[in-house]
Structures are given as structure tokens and as C-alpha cells.
Computed example of a mutant assay.
Amino acid sequence: MNADIDVLVLRVFTGPDGRYGNPLGVLRDGHSVPDQASRQAVARRLGFSETVFVDDPEHGRVDIYSPGARLPFAGHPLVGTAWLLGLEAFDLPVGSVTARHEPEFTWITARPEWAPPRTLRQYSSPDEIDALTVPEPGEWIYAWAWQHEAAGRIRARAFPGRGDGIDEDEATGAAALLLTHRLGRALEITQGRGSQILTRPGADGVIEIGGRVRMEAPSER
């Protein structure tokens, strides 16, 4: 594997002003890093919460890695990659994911059972969420509180607890998916420093996850 690889860096789930969002690394030529061990090493070196290797854009086949593991599903990588490539579907190990595009938002469909376990911990106010400090490595915690319950607005922060250098995840589609499933309603989540995630329950247990995506910069890493 070459030391330098071409990586596109996106910010997924940005706020209304285009700031914040969770950084995502995308290798459009996934075949440039052909095996799982090398891909895991690249994801660890890049240090994003997730990195996507695009293997077959025509059929929506992608391979997703955190710095420490290969992931069968993850929300923000799929929203970002759908936006980047204009994809309408993904073929994943967990099943088929559809995508749709609006002028401002990109949406994917997903099922809550695809998301890995998360501890959804409710607090009484957004101020309590803002005051939280990063816990010791351990369980994966999604801390949340109502900003405006009637309107479905939530304040959240995410602490992966993995000990892999990602102390706090700026925006996490899988955790938003689980919270939407638990509450059974559409949500507008402000996470991290100011990222925004939208969710909508659909038919047959499917949930839509949507957000804005911005290109950061192409780079060699």
C-alpha cells in the first residue's frame, strides 16, 4: 500500500450555517487499499470516527471502518457518501439502504436493529448536556435532553468510550436512529458543538436519517 492515498474529507450533519458536522474520510477508489487489514490501518491513521472505501459505486457497495473496527452499518458515512456520489441505494452486509436527495438535505433509510448497542442516557436539561465531561473509556453513551419536547427538538452529545482517540463523536446517525426508535417520533437533534441531525419514522420500522453535507478538501494522507 502506498504511504499517500487520495482522501476526500466531508463534514456530515453540518449546522444550518454550514459549520460543524462530523468529519468523514472517503476513498472513492476503494480498490487502492484492497484488503481489510490495510483498510483498518488507513482508518486508524486518518483518525476520523469513520472512513469509507467505495468498492462499487454503481451498485452502492462500500466498506466502512472506525479507527478500531470494520462496521456493517453507520449513519454519517452513508449520508456523506450518498451526497458525494449521488447514490440512491447501498448494498450493505445488514441489508439494502435507500437514499434520497433534497436541495438542502440528504436522507438515508435504516432499521434500528442495524445500529450497534448504545446507552441512551436522558438528562433533565440542555445545560446538563453542555456541562458533561468526557467519561472514562467504557460503554458507548448517547447523552440527550429535550430542548423543546412538543417540537421534537433535542440536545445531545456522544461519547464512544472506545479508547481509540475519538473521545466525543460530533454527530452520530446510528445513535440518532436508536433514539428515534425509542421515542417513536420525528426529531431534530443538535449534537456536539452545533451539528444537526433530522430523523423521521417511516413504515415497517424503517427510519429516515437526514442532514446537510459539505466538502472539506481533497488531500493526500
Rank of each mutant, 00 (worst) to 15 (best):
residue 191 Q to H: 06
residue 219 S to G: 15
residue 32 S to T: 14
residue 3 A to H: 13
residue 1 M to D: 12
residue 59 H to Y: 13
residue 10 L to T: 04
residue 50 E to S: 11
residue 152 G to I: 00
residue 212 R to N: 07
residue 32 S to N: 11
residue 51 T to F: 11
residue 64 I to G: 04
residue 163 G to N: 13
residue 160 P to H: 05
residue 170 E to L: 07
residue 184 G to C: 10
residue 89 A to I: 07
residue 100 R to L: 04
residue 123 Y to T: 01
residue 197 I to G: 00
residue 55 D to V: 13
residue 81 T to G: 10
residue 66 S to L: 07
residue 139 E to P: 14
residue 35 D to S: 10
residue 102 E to N: 01
residue 137 P to D: 12
residue 208 E to G: 13
residue 58 E to V: 10
residue 71 L to C: 10
residue 196 Q to W: 05
residue 59 H to E: 13
residue 160 P to E: 03
residue 70 R to C: 15
residue 19 R to N: 14
residue 28 R to Q: 15
residue 216 E to R: 14
residue 11 R to E: 06
residue 199 T to F: 06
residue 4 D to T: 12
residue 194 G to F: 02
residue 219 S to E: 15
residue 122 Q to M: 12
residue 119 T to V: 15
residue 190 T to C: 10
residue 149 E to M: 06
residue 142 Y to D: 09
residue 109 T to W: 05
residue 114 W to I: 08
residue 166 I to Y: 03
residue 163 G to P: 08
residue 74 A to I: 11
residue 170 E to C: 01
residue 124 S to N: 07
residue 126 P to K: 00
residue 39 R to H: 11
residue 34 P to H: 08
residue 102 E to D: 13
residue 25 G to S: 07
residue 136 E to G: 10
residue 190 T to S: 12
residue 209 I to A: 03
residue 157 R to S: 05
residue 112 P to Y: 03
residue 121 R to N: 03
residue 174 A to L: 05
residue 23 P to E: 13
residue 12 V to F: 07
residue 27 L to K: 01
residue 120 L to W: 07
residue 97 V to H: 04
residue 81 T to A: 05
residue 173 G to N: 05
residue 148 H to M: 03
residue 40 Q to W: 08
residue 160 P to L: 05
residue 121 R to M: 04
residue 178 L to P: 06
residue 186 A to H: 01
residue 48 F to G: 00
residue 99 A to L: 12
residue 133 T to F: 09
residue 72 P to W: 14
residue 187 L to K: 02
residue 79 V to C: 08
